[in-house]
């Protein structure tokens, strides 16, 4: 059984591994590096649950062997909180998923988050159609995608806002991150934007 020595830089940390050439990148990430956020949902490359960002591009890590990633930089969901945009907390994309109810069972979520990151890295202000195109390689069985699209839009707005805040050294206050009941001035929250929701 032949093996190869490879180096993977995952979320900024460099790892040296000895792997069989047949080991899929997703297995190296999950089994060898114990980063189990990225998932496996199919055997044909259709579901995208294994999506990671490799050298700046979203790829399906079940359609790549670990040896092919030798020397590359990989980002997974586990690195999102350490991203500069996270500002010590959740990354705006993660926050978007939480605020816009962009997940249910959570299984496709890490892949969706990474696909979302690739979309925004390339195009900070995508249209809805561009977001739908950008996540069309990721299957979700729970959400119907509508709130995933909104989650990525949330992040796009938030990143814009952060940029403006940074630029203007101030800017408008952030919306309340806690729960609100859905009615303006009801629970003391600022009201939740029901775009596309009830009766709008």
């Amino acid at each position: 059984m032949s093996t190869k020595d490879i180096t993977l830089t995952v979320n900024g940390e460099t790892h040296s591994l000895t792997v069989e050439p047949r080991m899929l990148l997703i297995h190296a990430i999950r089994e060898e590096l114990d980063l189990t956020g990225s998932h496996i949902g199919c055997d044909t490359g259709n579901c995208g649950a294994c999506t990671v960002v490799k050298d700046g591009e979203a790829i399906k890590s079940c359609l790549t062997f670990a040896v092919q990633a030798d020397g590359s930089e990989i980002e997974t969901v586990e690195g999102m909180e350490d991203h500069p945009d996270a500002d010590g907390g959740l990354h705006p994309i993660q926050e978007g998923f939480e605020q816009e109810h962009g997940l249910q069972c959570g299984y496709c979520t890490p892949g969706m988050i990474m696909a979302g990151k690739a979309i925004l890295d390339e195009n900070p202000n995508p249209t809805e159609e561009e977001i739908r195109e950008g996540i069309s390689g990721n299957l979700c069985r729970c959400t119907g995608y509508q709130n995933i699209v909104k989650s990525i839009q949330y992040a796009s707005d938030k990143l814009d806002e952060n940029g403006e805040v940074a630029a203007a050294d101030g800017g408008r206050a952030e919306t309340d991150g806690g729960f609100t009941c859905g009615v303006e001035n009801c629970c003391g929250g600022t009201g939740f934007d029901h775009t596309g929701g009830d009766n709008e």
Binding site: E57, A58, I59, A115, E133
Partner: peptide, 12 residues
């Protein structure tokens, strides 16, 4: 090009 598979697959 954009009709081939999906974005991740088109990247590779």
């Amino acid at each position: 090009a954009p009709l081939v598979a999906d974005p991740q697959i088109r990247n590779r």
